[in-house]
Amino acid sequence: MKKVEVYFLINLGAILSLFAIEGELAEYKNRQDDILKNVAQDKLQTLVEISNVESNYENPDHYRLFFNVEGQYEQGSIEFNPSFTTSIVEVDGDEVKVDDTYDWELDSVTVESYKDDGSENRYVAKVKLKSVEENYLNQPFDVDLGVKFIPDIDSVTYNQWSEAFGDYKVTNKLLKIINKEVSREGSFTINREFDTPITLIYMDGQQSEFFVLFDKEKYTVLRGLNWEIPFSVGGVNTDADFSVELASGKDLVKELVPGLPRAYIKGKGTGGGTVEVVGLRKRDKKSSITSARIVVVDPQYSSPSEEKEIYIGEQYVFDSRVKDVDRDKISVKISGSAVNTKTFNSFEAKLTPK
């Protein structure tokens, strides 16, 4: 009788252990999914870029903020949930008090496509000035565009993610999580906050907030090749109204080219590091600083060919896409004893040896 009881207790313990293991496995799987969700959010932040930002005060009825949206998203899926916030302003007679504890948000901001300049990716955020209380017209506003989009991840990014993770299976699982999220929410939302506040009107003939601003925090350049990186300048009317100089990264930058609304730094992919640019508005000595990290990588084909030989009379297609390089900037030169020398103004070259 004791043997039966012991036998029963042992199996009951085994069953309880199995339940515990299943519970631990379920918890571990949930933790993995949570980690991948965080990774997905982090990766999606890099898919969309806001660039070529420009404040415009020419319309007497509206403040207008122009910008470009570039990246890997389904055409027509871009939407915005803009937020313009500033500190609470209280006016008591001649006394003006600014309360930094609470924010006041505009409720009249609209964003629409702007195609007057022929661009497909140009947008404008507009604020109707009559809808804004007078106390806030000259206040600095923090801007977050709140971009919504449906990701359209290309093969280059897919391969980069897989190489970074060391396994295509992880990338595939990540894509499943992204697609599941899109199916549930309809799109992804990412914050796009501006480093420098904007103002809705000019102050004494000039914008009260002056800024210089890189489009991204990190730029990848190819080793040994020349590079050019733009940044935006706002709050001035002409090139003569401001100056820019390097605060750090002088060993990386060969040339700093002022311009309005876009200026540029130029260099060569010999080493990486952080570049800081300081802008100074001459009239009132207001300054702004922006920084970006430059990462140098060796050139690599996006889709390296495994074919080591081709045959006479058969057409061969050479795909010369290079990681981290816009395909529109690639051309191919073919030469050799079996073909005539030819340059293709495309990343793709088709040849038939004779």
Rank of each mutant, 00 (worst) to 15 (best):
T46P: 07
V170H: 05
V96M: 13
I190R: 03
Q41L: 15
L129F: 07
I312G: 00
R283I: 11
E79R: 13
L47P: 03
L129Q: 13
N226G: 08
I88W: 10
S51V: 09
I201F: 10
V69F: 02
I15K: 00
I190Q: 04
V6I: 12
N81Y: 15
N237T: 10
E74L: 12
D241H: 00
R281M: 11
P353S: 01
K115C: 08
G272T: 13
E70Q: 06
I334E: 00
D144V: 14
D167F: 01
I201V: 15
N52K: 10
P299G: 02
L12T: 14
F318T: 02
K173F: 11
S208A: 15
T352L: 02
Y301D: 03
V332D: 01
Q206R: 14
F84W: 05
T238K: 08
L256G: 00
D61E: 07
I10G: 01
R31W: 06
N59L: 09
L9V: 07
D61K: 14
E307W: 02
G273W: 04
I177C: 02
F149E: 11
V89W: 11
A263Y: 06
D284W: 10
S87M: 13
K216C: 03
T199D: 15
K128C: 11
E112F: 05
N159I: 11
S305C: 01
I153M: 05
E24M: 11
K130S: 15
G186L: 11
I312W: 00
I310A: 00
F66D: 09
N191K: 06
F318E: 00
Y57G: 04
Y136P: 04
N135Q: 14
P299H: 03
S187T: 07
T110W: 10
Q207N: 05
S162K: 02
E307T: 01
E133G: 09
K323S: 02
E74Q: 10
K2I: 14
N68Q: 07
D239A: 15
D99L: 13
T352P: 01
E307I: 05
N179Q: 08
I310G: 00
K350S: 08
F318I: 07
